[in-house]
């Protein structure tokens, strides 16, 4: 099962395939988020795809590798200003639509990844105690 050894990660096949496809997943997420104005997609969808890319790293390489790439402080530093710009854009209506989509993407990606980290870390202790 996937969660038997959460610190080690999965087999070498999964790690290699993840290393090859990760850039494409990130590019696809950014594309879906940026071109939401003229084609299907939107900021939220792109943000969820970005969050899924980091979840993918976490499942394949284990917890430490993903947390090394995206620290909690970085999450906090990125999420706050993005939310502020988004709020400003909604309140005034002056911020361009693309910047609003990028802000929404960043907020959603970091927020969902933070939830995932919280859930995985929360269940660590009771697995050790069993």
């Amino acid at each position: 099962m996937v969660y038997k050894s959460p610190n080690k990660g999965m087999t070498v096949i999964v790690k290699t395939v993840t290393r090859l496809t990760l850039a494409f997943i990130l590019i696809y997420g950014i594309y879906i988020g940026m071109t939401g104005g003229v084609s299907p997609g939107g900021g939220f969808t792109g943000g969820v795809i970005l969050a899924l890319a980091f979840v993918h790293i976490m499942l394949a390489f284990g917890k430490e590798a993903a947390l090394r790439k995206l620290r909690a402080n970085t999450l906090r530093m990125v999420m706050g200003p993005a939310a502020f710009i988004f709020l400003l854009g909604v309140a005034t209506g002056r911020v361009p639509e693309e910047i609003g989509a990028i802000c929404e993407m960043v907020i959603v990606g970091t927020g969902l990844f933070a939830i995932f980290i919280a859930l995985v870390l929360a269940s660590k202790s009771d697995r050790n105690s069993e």
Binding site: M1, P40, G41, T45, V48, L52, F116, V120
Partner: peptide, 22 residues
């Protein structure tokens, strides 16, 4: 739009639910 969003959201909630059931 909804088809893409539903697919992606379904994958994320599936991962979280599988994590809760093991």
């Amino acid at each position: 739009d909804l088809a893409i969003l539903q697919l992606v959201v379904e994958i994320l909630s599936l991962i979280i639910l599988v994590h809760a059931t093991t």
